[in-house]
Amino acid sequence: MYDKLFPPKKILLSNGKVVHKKRSRAPFITILVAIAIYLSAYYTEFSFYTIFTRIHNFFDIIIAMMPPDWGYINHLWKPLMDTIKMSLIGSLIGAVLVLPLAVLASVNIVPNKSTAAIFKVILSLIRTLPTLVTALIATFIFGLGPIAGSIAILIFTVGYVGKLLYEQIENAEMGSFEAMESIGMTRFQAFRYAIFPQVLPSYLSTSLFCFEGNVRYAAILGFVGAGGIGLLLNQDLGWRNYSGVGMTILALVVTVFIIEQISEYFRRKLI
């Protein structure tokens, strides 16, 4: 269609042969993207004017956070540790639970295609649940506090690691799997001995990366009462205790940074 509207460019070689070069789609796509941007700004009532006139409020809050209330750190240890514990236990249990699910979702391991499809749908349904919503529901079931947060993180981990893991399993080299079957193993035994060693490093790496992200998620789960440092942030913002908020954010930034560095170090070792 596009080629008919804009006929390909002809390049004549010295020996008389003609090569057709198709016209670039880039200008057409640029126009489409520009229209999409305009429409989305129009419907969301986005305005640069508001940004310019109100941005100073943002800096007012930042300035109010300076200097941070250093003494406030004594209140922070417990919720900060709760946040880390929540994400650690949630990531750990989630990463273990996801293993059988990911195997059952892999078409190359499960002989029955529809079983694999069902487990893929389950995993993608889990991924569509926003963590904040899962945490909120978990607080109704397990009560306010870190348990609800851990459950929410566990569920998110299952969805996230599950998808990446079954993709790795499906891309694994199947030659050794065939060899294991020829030795007399069942498909699941063949997975354990041929595919698992292949995907293990990337599985661990994905799980660590997910844990890194989960520490950040865990920090906001307190907003819905699921424990951790978010609870404190929510309170202090409400009380306009900005110097306390400054200290909390600083502590969070440092913690996340340290965890990221450690996790990155180990992930580099893995690959």
Partner: peptide, 26 residues
């Protein structure tokens, strides 16, 4: 019945001994 393949079909990330040991798994 043993089987040998063109592309060897070993698990390359583990040791030689562990590759031989898999034949006892069943």
């Amino acid at each position: 019945i043993g089987m040998i393949f063109q592309s060897f079909n070993l698990v390359t990330r583990i040791s030689v001994l562990n590759n031989v040991l898999v034949s006892f798994v069943p």
